[in-house]
Design a protein around this nucleic acid. Structure first.
Lengths: 196, 196
DNA sequence: CCTAATTTCCCCTTTTTATGTGATTGTATT
DNA sequence: AATACAATCACATAAAAAGGGGAAATTAGG
């Protein structure tokens, strides 16, 4: 029931990268919360007040502060430390992270790295309701095709009540209530193929 | 007045940067439409079919193809060519662009650079969806955004009856009755821009 | 074998949409 | 001046969907 929120700090000098990471990650998971920091100290001060689950840091900030970083890691072992690199970096620095995102990584790879790193301490990661069941997809396809609930019921040879139930479950699983949102979802997931 | 759509191609190896630029630019201006390409050739093929207003290119792709780039620029002088750099680059390459975005630039600076570069050729010759009136498009946008008739009425400060009338006219003009069909219509006509 | 997930069905009430038939302004176009 | 169209509002009825309850049968996985 209670979707666990994940707070992620991004400490990176680039607004573009910060925006990109947020936008990309929010698309796969809705329960991420982001905070942007312009330098390590700012983040550090914040974290004392309100602990984060993950810190995505540009190694640029660590170049001359490796011992400081080690201290931070020791002090907060439950935080996942992720590095985000634009170019080549020394292995000595990169090996200190729990995961490395390269700026050229695909969306899938980025969200996979984040998920894997967060999974370490996920107390409620059982809600893997990303995928719709076979029957739910049947309903979604007809729905997005413009069918009413009754038409869907007739085509699938089931009761209209069942269609309503499937729709309820689809909305719960995807978190999308509007039909237009579901249409965009279906296109993006390649469940339907509109020819533009 | 300033409602003309601007198509922007982003040719960059980084999904994160691409996402970041889109997210950042869409926040200030809603009428940008983005296409992402993984290399110059892919972009080039696309541009032959459908001209873009601006190309944001990583100089990485130009490193050994400067003459090719010059040819492209000569062939399509109306396109604004913007470079996006993560690190240091030779001035010889950078001077070929109409504008340079550095990855560390602020949001304000990025959108300023883009706006300035686009200002060169704002002719507003884009009446793709002249079937629908201005107000009908307002309604359609909110509709595919998931708003109910009442919500649309509140947002546009008109009566719900007017919204219903607009919707009737939209359905009559387009011949599309279902909301999902209208969503696909809006995407195909570039009235809305879902980021997949 | 047990459990979780899926698929199916039903009830209820309230809200929203669909459809038709109107009218009144204002603004262009002819 | 006449015409067309856009944008606004109204009333009425029937259909559909939304949202809230359940619950039984089947299937698949550990």
């Amino acid at each position: 029931m209670d979707k666990c929120k994940r707070t992620i700090a991004i400490i990176d000098p680039s607004n573009i990268v910060c925006e990109g990471l947020m936008s990309l990650l929010l698309r796969s998971e809705k329960h991420y919360f982001f905070y942007k920091f312009d330098d390590l100290d700012e983040f550090w001060k914040f974290n004392e007040r309100e602990n984060v689950d993950m810190a995505i840091i540009s190694p640029l900030f660590l170049q001359n502060r490796l011992t400081y970083f080690s201290k931070m890691k020791r002090q907060y072992p439950e935080i996942s430390w992720i590095g985000v690199v634009y170019s080549l970096f020394e292995d000595k620095i990169l090996s200190m992270f729990d995961g490395i995102i390269s700026i050229t990584d695909s969306k899938e790879r980025v969200s996979e790295i984040i998920k894997k790193a967060l999974k370490k301490q996920c107390s409620c990661n059982n809600n893997q309701h990303d995928d719709l069941s076979e029957r739910e997809i049947d309903v979604l396809v007809l729905l997005v095709d413009g069918c009413s609930n009754k038409e869907i019921a007739d085509k699938l040879c089931i009761s209209i009540h069942t269609v309503v139930t499937h729709r309820k479950n689809i909305s719960e699983k995807t978190g999308i209530k509007s039909l237009s949102g579901l249409t965009i979802y279906a296109i993006s997931k390649k469940i339907i193929n509109p020819i533009f």
